[in-house]
Protein backbone atom coordinates (compact mmCIF):
# COMPACT_ATOMS: atom_id res chain seq x y z
CA UNK A 1 0.00 0.00 0.00
CA UNK A 2 1.48 3.28 -1.04
CA UNK A 3 2.02 6.04 1.47
CA UNK A 4 -0.79 8.60 1.72
CA UNK A 5 1.54 11.50 2.43
CA UNK A 6 4.49 11.96 0.19
CA UNK A 7 7.51 13.88 1.45
CA UNK A 8 6.24 16.96 -0.36
CA UNK A 9 3.29 17.00 2.05
CA UNK A 10 5.62 18.41 4.71
CA UNK A 11 6.26 21.47 2.58
CA UNK A 12 2.62 21.73 1.67
CA UNK A 13 1.60 21.66 5.33
CA UNK A 14 4.03 24.45 6.23
CA UNK A 15 3.02 26.45 3.19
CA UNK A 16 -0.64 26.14 4.02
CA UNK A 17 -0.05 27.53 7.54
CA UNK A 18 1.82 30.53 6.15
CA UNK A 19 -0.56 30.81 3.22
CA UNK A 20 -3.61 30.65 5.47
CA UNK A 21 -2.26 33.41 7.67
CA UNK A 22 -1.37 35.51 4.65
CA UNK A 23 -4.83 34.96 3.25
CA UNK A 24 -6.45 36.04 6.51
CA UNK A 25 -4.27 39.13 6.79
CA UNK A 26 -4.82 40.14 3.20
CA UNK A 27 -8.55 39.58 3.55
CA UNK A 28 -8.70 41.84 6.58
CA UNK A 29 -6.57 44.38 4.70
CA UNK A 30 -8.92 44.12 1.77
CA UNK A 31 -11.96 44.75 3.95
CA UNK A 32 -10.31 47.75 5.59
CA UNK A 33 -9.35 49.05 2.17
CA UNK A 34 -12.86 48.44 0.91
CA UNK A 35 -14.30 50.32 3.88
CA UNK A 36 -12.23 53.35 2.94
CA UNK A 37 -12.76 53.04 -0.77
CA UNK A 38 -15.08 55.27 -2.72
CA UNK A 39 -17.24 52.18 -3.30
CA UNK A 40 -18.35 52.48 0.33
CA UNK A 41 -17.88 56.21 1.01
CA UNK A 42 -19.45 57.21 -2.33
CA UNK A 43 -16.74 59.84 -2.69
CA UNK A 44 -15.82 61.03 -6.18
CA UNK A 45 -19.11 59.73 -7.51
CA UNK A 46 -21.31 61.98 -9.64
CA UNK A 47 -24.85 62.11 -8.30
CA UNK A 48 -27.71 62.36 -10.78
CA UNK A 49 -30.00 65.24 -9.86
CA UNK A 50 -33.50 66.14 -11.04
CA UNK A 51 -31.86 69.01 -12.95
CA UNK A 52 -28.37 68.92 -14.36
CA UNK A 53 -27.16 71.76 -12.19
CA UNK A 54 -23.53 72.62 -12.83
CA UNK A 55 -21.47 74.32 -10.16
CA UNK A 56 -18.69 74.50 -12.75
CA UNK A 57 -20.88 76.83 -14.80
CA UNK A 58 -22.43 78.94 -12.04
CA UNK A 59 -19.32 79.27 -9.88
CA UNK A 60 -16.52 78.72 -12.35
CA UNK A 61 -17.84 80.49 -15.45
CA UNK A 62 -20.17 83.06 -13.92
CA UNK A 63 -18.24 83.76 -10.73
CA UNK A 64 -21.29 83.62 -8.47
CA UNK A 65 -20.28 83.50 -4.82
CA UNK A 66 -21.18 80.41 -2.75
CA UNK A 67 -23.19 82.59 -0.39
CA UNK A 68 -25.49 83.90 -3.10
CA UNK A 69 -27.35 80.59 -2.94
CA UNK A 70 -26.11 78.96 0.27
CA UNK A 71 -27.14 81.96 2.32
CA UNK A 72 -27.10 80.40 5.76
CA UNK A 73 -23.63 78.85 5.58
CA UNK A 74 -22.09 81.56 7.78
CA UNK A 75 -24.79 81.65 10.41
CA UNK A 76 -26.33 78.21 10.63
CA UNK A 77 -25.38 74.59 11.09
CA UNK A 78 -26.93 73.97 7.68
CA UNK A 79 -25.46 75.66 4.61
CA UNK A 80 -28.85 75.90 3.00
CA UNK A 81 -30.20 74.69 -0.32
CA UNK A 82 -31.60 77.66 -2.21
CA UNK A 83 -35.34 77.88 -2.75
CA UNK A 84 -36.48 77.79 -6.38
CA UNK A 85 -36.95 81.55 -6.23
CA UNK A 86 -33.18 82.00 -6.06
CA UNK A 87 -32.88 80.12 -9.37
CA UNK A 88 -35.56 82.34 -10.84
CA UNK A 89 -33.71 85.53 -9.85
CA UNK A 90 -31.72 84.95 -13.04
CA UNK A 91 -33.62 82.24 -14.89
CA UNK A 92 -36.77 84.32 -15.14
CA UNK A 93 -34.89 85.85 -18.07
CA UNK A 94 -31.88 83.70 -18.87
CA UNK A 95 -32.62 80.32 -20.48
CA UNK A 96 -36.22 81.01 -19.56
CA UNK A 97 -37.51 78.68 -22.26
CA UNK A 98 -34.89 75.95 -21.93
CA UNK A 99 -36.45 72.48 -21.62
CA UNK A 100 -33.68 71.59 -19.19
CA UNK A 101 -35.05 74.15 -16.75
CA UNK A 102 -38.69 73.08 -17.03
CA UNK A 103 -38.59 71.38 -13.60
CA UNK A 104 -37.49 74.73 -12.11
CA UNK A 105 -40.34 76.58 -13.73
CA UNK A 106 -42.78 73.83 -12.76
CA UNK A 107 -41.56 74.11 -9.18
CA UNK A 108 -42.28 77.83 -8.98
CA UNK A 109 -45.56 77.49 -10.90
CA UNK A 110 -46.98 74.69 -8.76
CA UNK A 111 -45.26 75.70 -5.52
CA UNK A 112 -43.65 72.27 -5.22
CA UNK A 113 -40.12 71.97 -3.87
CA UNK A 114 -37.43 70.61 -6.13
CA UNK A 115 -36.17 67.28 -4.82
CA UNK A 116 -32.43 67.60 -4.94
CA UNK A 117 -30.47 64.51 -4.00
CA UNK A 118 -28.27 65.16 -1.03
CA UNK A 119 -24.59 64.72 -1.89
CA UNK A 120 -22.99 65.17 1.52
CA UNK A 121 -24.91 63.19 4.10
CA UNK A 122 -23.21 62.73 7.44
CA UNK A 123 -24.50 59.96 9.72
CA UNK A 124 -27.13 61.28 12.12
CA UNK A 125 -24.98 60.48 15.14
CA UNK A 126 -22.52 63.18 14.10
CA UNK A 127 -23.15 66.76 15.11
CA UNK A 128 -21.85 69.10 12.44
CA UNK A 129 -22.10 72.86 12.19
CA UNK A 130 -21.17 74.67 8.99
CA UNK A 131 -20.99 78.16 10.46
CA UNK A 132 -18.40 77.33 13.09
CA UNK A 133 -16.08 75.87 10.46
CA UNK A 134 -16.56 78.81 8.11
CA UNK A 135 -15.92 81.27 10.96
CA UNK A 136 -12.74 79.50 11.98
CA UNK A 137 -10.90 79.56 8.73
CA UNK A 138 -11.97 76.35 7.02
CA UNK A 139 -12.43 77.15 3.35
CA UNK A 140 -15.30 75.62 1.38
CA UNK A 141 -12.70 74.08 -0.88
CA UNK A 142 -10.92 72.36 2.00
CA UNK A 143 -13.80 69.93 2.46
CA UNK A 144 -15.78 70.23 -0.76
CA UNK A 145 -12.90 70.39 -3.24
CA UNK A 146 -12.93 72.45 -6.42
CA UNK A 147 -16.68 72.87 -6.63
CA UNK A 148 -16.06 75.43 -9.37
CA UNK A 149 -14.80 72.58 -11.54
CA UNK A 150 -17.64 70.12 -10.88
CA UNK A 151 -20.14 69.82 -13.73
CA UNK A 152 -22.24 67.59 -11.48
CA UNK A 153 -21.61 67.84 -7.77
CA UNK A 154 -19.87 65.02 -6.04
CA UNK A 155 -18.46 64.40 -2.60
CA UNK A 156 -14.76 65.14 -2.72
CA UNK A 157 -13.72 63.44 0.51
CA UNK A 158 -14.61 60.28 2.38
CA UNK A 159 -16.39 62.13 5.25
CA UNK A 160 -15.13 59.32 7.46
CA UNK A 161 -14.05 60.03 11.01
CA UNK A 162 -10.35 59.69 10.30
CA UNK A 163 -10.78 62.39 7.67
CA UNK A 164 -12.45 64.75 10.18
CA UNK A 165 -9.80 63.98 12.76
CA UNK A 166 -6.97 64.70 10.34
CA UNK A 167 -7.91 68.39 10.56
CA UNK A 168 -9.24 68.36 14.12
CA UNK A 169 -5.90 67.04 15.34
CA UNK A 170 -3.85 69.53 13.38
CA UNK A 171 -5.99 72.43 12.16
CA UNK A 172 -2.88 74.45 11.27
CA UNK A 173 -2.44 72.22 8.24
CA UNK A 174 -5.65 73.52 6.65
CA UNK A 175 -6.89 76.84 8.05
CA UNK A 176 -6.83 79.90 5.83
CA UNK A 177 -7.56 83.59 6.40
CA UNK A 178 -11.24 84.39 6.91
CA UNK A 179 -11.15 86.60 3.82
CA UNK A 180 -10.30 83.57 1.66
CA UNK A 181 -12.94 81.12 2.88
CA UNK A 182 -14.98 81.27 -0.31
CA UNK A 183 -12.01 81.40 -2.68
CA UNK A 184 -11.62 78.46 -5.01
CA UNK A 185 -8.11 77.42 -5.96
CA UNK A 186 -6.61 79.28 -2.99
CA UNK A 187 -2.86 79.28 -2.71
CA UNK A 188 -1.40 80.57 0.55
CA UNK A 189 0.81 83.64 -0.12
CA UNK A 190 3.21 82.37 2.55
CA UNK A 191 3.87 78.66 3.21
CA UNK A 192 1.08 76.98 5.16
CA UNK A 193 3.64 75.83 7.73
CA UNK A 194 4.15 79.51 8.60
CA UNK A 195 0.65 80.86 8.04
CA UNK A 196 -1.25 77.95 9.61
CA UNK A 197 0.06 78.18 13.19
CA UNK A 198 -0.29 81.99 13.09
CA UNK A 199 -3.94 81.76 12.07
CA UNK A 200 -4.66 79.06 14.64
CA UNK A 201 -3.30 81.41 17.28
CA UNK A 202 -5.00 84.52 15.93
CA UNK A 203 -8.42 82.88 15.61
CA UNK A 204 -8.07 80.97 18.89
CA UNK A 205 -8.69 77.64 17.16
CA UNK A 206 -8.58 74.65 19.47
CA UNK A 207 -7.78 71.12 18.43
CA UNK A 208 -11.08 69.55 19.44
CA UNK A 209 -10.70 65.78 19.53
CA UNK A 210 -12.98 64.97 22.43
CA UNK A 211 -15.58 62.35 21.43
CA UNK A 212 -18.40 64.58 22.57
CA UNK A 213 -17.31 67.39 20.26
CA UNK A 214 -19.12 65.64 17.44
CA UNK A 215 -20.96 62.75 19.10
CA UNK A 216 -23.19 64.57 21.49
Amino acid sequence: MPQIFKPSANTLAKASIVGGLLLAVSLIGLLIGLGRSSYVTRAQEFIEQPIQFSHAHHVGDDGIDCRYCHTSVETSSFAGIPPTKTCMNCHSQIWSTSPMLEPVRASIRDDRSLRWIRVHDLPDFVYFNHSVHVKNGVGCETCHGRVDEMPLTYQQNSLQMEWCLDCHRAPEKYVRPRSEIFTMGYRPPVPQSVQGPELVKAYGIESLTNCSTCHR
Partner: peptide
Protein backbone atom coordinates in the same frame (compact mmCIF):
# COMPACT_ATOMS: atom_id res chain seq x y z
CA UNK B 1 -30.70 52.92 11.97
CA UNK B 2 -28.32 55.26 13.70
CA UNK B 3 -26.92 56.61 10.46
CA UNK B 4 -30.37 57.66 9.46
CA UNK B 5 -32.35 58.40 12.58
CA UNK B 6 -36.14 58.83 12.35
CA UNK B 7 -36.06 62.63 12.32
CA UNK B 8 -36.02 65.25 9.60
CA UNK B 9 -32.81 66.88 8.55
CA UNK B 10 -33.18 70.50 7.40
CA UNK B 11 -35.26 70.64 4.20
CA UNK B 12 -35.62 66.86 4.08
CA UNK B 13 -38.59 65.53 2.13
Amino acid sequence: DMHDAPRYEPLEA
